[in-house]
Write a protein that binds this DNA or RNA. Structure first.
Lengths: 198, 198
DNA sequence: AAGAAATCATACCGAATAGTATGATTCTAG
DNA sequence: CTAGAATCATACTATTCGGTATGATTTCTT
């Protein structure tokens, strides 16, 4: 019983997967429902049985991406060695933001975000919230910073430098360069903000 | 004599101006040659007399934007007060990158840059080069930093935080917030890198 | 096995678009 | 003033795309 239910869910997933692929590669405007249907191994009518319009499919595909793309580099924050915890977190953060999937999603959202800001806002407002909370707690408890928002903001900005460079066509940094950059950013943050890393 | 030459140049400029406007607002795919022609107060055939295809027009429009959008916040670097020079430079830098025109160009390039990386690369490789050279010289001469690349990279990254936030739909910072952010970034840089601001 | 739901294959509609064609009209050069 | 150009106005072609319609076929339920 309920066999058709699971089949339905599978079809839905297949369509969403295909939609993500096609949207990420081609962008919202260029991607066609025919191509998405073909990529899902499904007829266009089937696509329309699950999603009433291209716009709705796009929105659901974005949700799908977010759910699929959740990373957990905040686990590093449990390391008792404070400096190692921060360094590992930083490297994980940078690497995640340099991954193809992250870059593609970011490109897509920035591109389409000009016309529908709510979309961009809702997308970005959900993902990082947990991580942000954990990081804030870490700064408070382990570094003794009462209001760590500024420190986190500046640190994050420094960590995102490689991603922003890659976005404008510069070559991706090597593993070694990522580590160096993480170390450097952490040092500047710690010294610059007068933090005590015991 | 040569009256027709100037008329030709004016028409060309008018078309390029219109193309920039339309491309920036609608994006490459959505923008139509009909609308661009209309915005330029010109027939589509006239557009095609000057530019052989939409793609060529897009490339020329990008060049046009770059030439039109050159800012000179590096003039602040001549201020004999070192700290004031850096602070004014920072504020100018942030404000420029928060302007609508900058944001729009950035969005357009990031969006279209996924498919044609050379375009993005060439666009960004020309503009900031002068500014970068002056800033490098400043760090060397006035701050005594032999290899200021890292410092400049981290500083720039911090300064770009507001722009990246605006890009993902967060509200634009006030004038006061921009100044505070510039001050904070400068302090963290100076202290963090152990620079001597005399 | 039989009826119902989902899916397929295919064709179609209306709108939009890049690019071309043509003939009339305006502007410039000599 | 006149010849040649640039431009205009308009229409056309071929294609693409979002979305719908239809009738056949497969898949699940009972």
């Amino acid at each position: 019983m309920g066999k058709i239910e699971t089949r339905k869910k599978l079809k839905r997933r297949a369509i969403l997967d295909a939609a993500c692929d096609v949207f990420l590669v081609e962008g919202y405007v260029t991607a066609s429902m025919d191509r998405i249907a073909a990529a899902a191994g499904v007829t266009k009518q089937t696509v329309y049985r699950y999603f009433s319009s291209k716009e709705e499919l796009f929105g659901e595909a974005l949700k799908h991406m977010r759910e699929a793309g959740e990373e957990e580099f905040e686990t590093h924050l449990t390391n008792p060695d404070t400096r190692a915890a921060l360094l590992d977190y930083a490297v994980g953060f940078i690497r995640a933001h340099l991954s193809d999937s992250h870059l593609e999603v970011y490109r897509l959202l920035i591109a389409e975000g000009g016309k529908s800001p709510e979309l961009t806002r809702t997308f970005f407002s959900v993902g990082p919230e947990d991580t942000d909370r954990e990081l804030t707690a870490f700064f408070r408890q382990r570094l003794g910073v009462d209001h760590p928002e500024t420190a986190i903001r500046l640190w994050t900005a420094m960590l995102l430098a490689p991603r922003n460079e890659v976005l404008i066509g510069l070559p991706a940094p090597s593993v070694r360069q990522v580590e160096d950059h993480a170390r450097m950013s952490l040092d500047v943050l710690v010294t610059g903000m007068g933090l005590e890393v015991r």
